[in-house]
């Protein structure tokens, strides 16, 4: 009877969502970065981890990150609907309801944390739980809509995966893993502010206080430059710390100098420049920059492992 009643009110709904729509809730593109950086953290960490357990741990970290993405889409459905970049997501396009996304996100959060905690250790499990909480509650529900520094603090959530990978393999949080965290943490603001510069109107329409539409373009460009300078220095730190070798060190210095050069171009860009070419270039370069740094860290360590196996 209730169903008939609902139909009369136009509320009855049978889902047409495909599995792919649920997969889209996990933000697969963000997940791929999480998988990669967590894997690098795991490989760099001292102490061995069984390869099968490592694979399952990476999967749990990926699913946990995806779950926080689903919770983010559940909460942000209203602003996703008005931004061109996000309007086609499963909730604003009507394929998945908010309630379904919430249930999906919560279920996967619990399962991923329990899996990682029981199979590796509870430092890793606890870090994953904290990351999900940080992204879904601290960033999405609180900071994103209330402060233009949202991306600085929210960026921490995206910076945790290498630390979780490190903790899963070694059972500890050490200075080296904090440096890996810092590289992504410092990279996030210039990366997103470059995007916000050329997507300014989108964030304006959605009433999201991003730095360019609150503090102005000039101030944003200065902040991008400041973060880029600190990032270039911190990204080279794994070399003197002994976490990476000279190949990484030299590449990090070269790429860092290039990052700063792009940031200077953005800083010099005329206010109100409609094409925003330097900002777009910085945004694209920042993606390449982070992926390369972590790929070189990984490559160097794998080479070291292969070399020591040969010697033995």
């Amino acid at each position: 009877m209730a169903l008939v009643h609902n139909i009369e009110n136009g509320e009855a709904r049978i889902s047409e969502a495909m599995p792919g729509d649920y997969f889209a809730l996990l933000k697969p593109r963000v997940m791929s970065l999480v998988v990669f950086t967590a894997f690098v953290g795991m490989i760099l960490a001292p102490g061995g981890i069984n390869p099968l357990i490592a694979a399952i741990a990476i999967l749990a970290i990926a699913v946990g990150a995806g779950a926080s993405g689903a919770l983010n889409m559940w909460y942000d459905a209203d602003i996703d609907a008005v931004m061109t970049r996000t309007a086609k997501r499963p909730i604003p396009s009507g394929r998945v309801t908010r309630g379904e996304a919430l249930a999906f996100g919560l279920t996967l959060s619990v399962l991923s944390v329990l899996t990682l905690g029981t199979l590796t250790n509870w430092i890793a499990g606890g870090l994953l739980a904290f990351t999900i909480f940080f992204y879904a509650v601290i960033y999405t529900m609180w900071l994103k809509r209330s402060t233009p520094q949202n991306i600085v603090i929210g960026g921490a959530a995206g910076a945790f995966p290498p630390m979780i990978g490190w903790a899963a393999a070694s059972g500890t949080i050490s200075l080296e893993s904090v440096v890996l965290f810092l590289i992504i943490f410092l990279w996030t603001p210039p990366h997103f502010w470059a995007l916000a510069l050329f997507k300014l109107r989108d964030y304006d329409m959605a009433n999201v206080p991003m730095l360019p539409n609150v503090a102005g373009e000039r101030h944003t460009k200065l902040q991008i430059l400041a973060y880029s300078l600190v990032l270039a220095v911190v990204a080279a730190a794994p070399w003197p710390m002994g976490l990476a070798g000279p190949v990484y060190g030299l590449i990090a210095i070269g790429l860092g100098a290039n990052f700063v050069r792009h940031a200077i171009s953005v800083w010099r860009m005329e206010d109100g420049d409609a094409t925003m070419v330097p900002a777009k270039k910085l945004f694209r370069f920042s993606l390449y920059y982070l992926a390369t740094l972590f790929a070189v860290l990984l490559g160097e360590r794998l080479f070291e492992i292969a070399h020591s196996a040969q010697v033995a």
């Binding site: 008939v4 049978i14 889902s15 495909m18 599995p19 649920y22």
Partner: peptide, 24 residues
Amino acid sequence: ETERKDVQPTEAQKKAQRRRSIAL
């Protein structure tokens, strides 16, 4: 007693449900 109206899912809805069940 009022007449019972069963909801008949469309082909698209049935297909989506089947796919979701398989994925699950």
